[in-house]
Computed example of a mutant assay.
Amino acid sequence: MLHFLGSIFLLISTYMQIEVLVLIYLVTNIVHLIFSTTFLIDYALSCGFCTLEAIPVFFTLIFSFYFWLVAFSYWRRLQWENNPENDD
């Protein structure tokens, strides 16, 4: 639920260009990555023949990491655009 709210904040930040909302998404996505990785490791250790059930979670982790990198680059661009020292 927390990651869902962070995703909504990221969507809102694309329209209003607020850096704090992107930062909230980045933090919630890190929490999501940590808990999903922990779940995947625990699930793999407890179930010997559950590879077909763990594959979607693995792809979710890969996509989530990719989206974190995209949001991070967007956050860095917002920081650069809002920096008063930059002359355009």
Rank of each mutant, 00 (worst) to 15 (best):
M1W: 15
M1Q: 15
L2Q: 15
H3I: 07
H3G: 10
L5Y: 15
G6R: 02
G6V: 04
G6W: 01
S7W: 05
I8Y: 15
I8R: 15
F9D: 05
L10R: 01
L10M: 04
I12T: 04
I12N: 01
I12Q: 02
S13I: 02
T14N: 11
M16Q: 14
M16C: 13
Q17L: 14
Q17Y: 12
Q17H: 14
I18Y: 12
E19C: 07
E19H: 08
E19G: 08
V20C: 11
V20K: 14
L21G: 04
V22G: 09
V22N: 10
V22P: 00
I24L: 09
I24N: 01
I24R: 00
I24P: 00
Y25V: 01
L26V: 01
T28V: 13
N29S: 15
V31W: 14
H32M: 15
H32P: 02
L33C: 11
L33F: 06
L33T: 05
L33K: 04
I34A: 14
F35L: 15
F35V: 13
S36R: 10
S36L: 13
T37Y: 14
T38H: 10
T38G: 13
F39P: 01
F39V: 06
F39N: 08
L40V: 10
I41A: 12
I41C: 09
I41T: 10
D42H: 11
D42R: 10
Y43T: 10
Y43H: 12
Y43N: 11
Y43E: 12
Y43F: 13
A44F: 07
L45Y: 09
L45T: 07
L45H: 07
L45I: 07
L45N: 10
L45A: 07
S46G: 09
G48I: 06
G48Y: 07
L52D: 11
L52C: 10
E53F: 14
E53W: 14
A54V: 05
I55K: 08
I55N: 05
P56I: 01
V57H: 13
F58P: 02
F58A: 14
F58W: 12
F59V: 05
F59T: 04
T60A: 09
T60D: 14
L61K: 02
L61F: 03
L61H: 02
L61P: 01
I62S: 03
I62T: 04
I62K: 03
F63D: 00
F63C: 03
F63T: 02
F63A: 04
F65L: 05
F65K: 00
Y66C: 01
Y66V: 04
F67A: 04
W68A: 01
L69S: 02
L69C: 08
L69D: 01
L69R: 03
A71S: 04
A71Y: 00
A71N: 00
F72P: 00
F72M: 03
Y74N: 05
Y74V: 06
W75S: 07
W75E: 03
R77P: 02
L78M: 08
Q79T: 06
Q79F: 09
W80N: 12
W80G: 06
E81Y: 11
N82Q: 15
N82T: 09
N83Y: 07
N83S: 11
N83E: 07
N83R: 06
P84A: 05
P84F: 06
N86W: 07
D87H: 10
D88W: 11
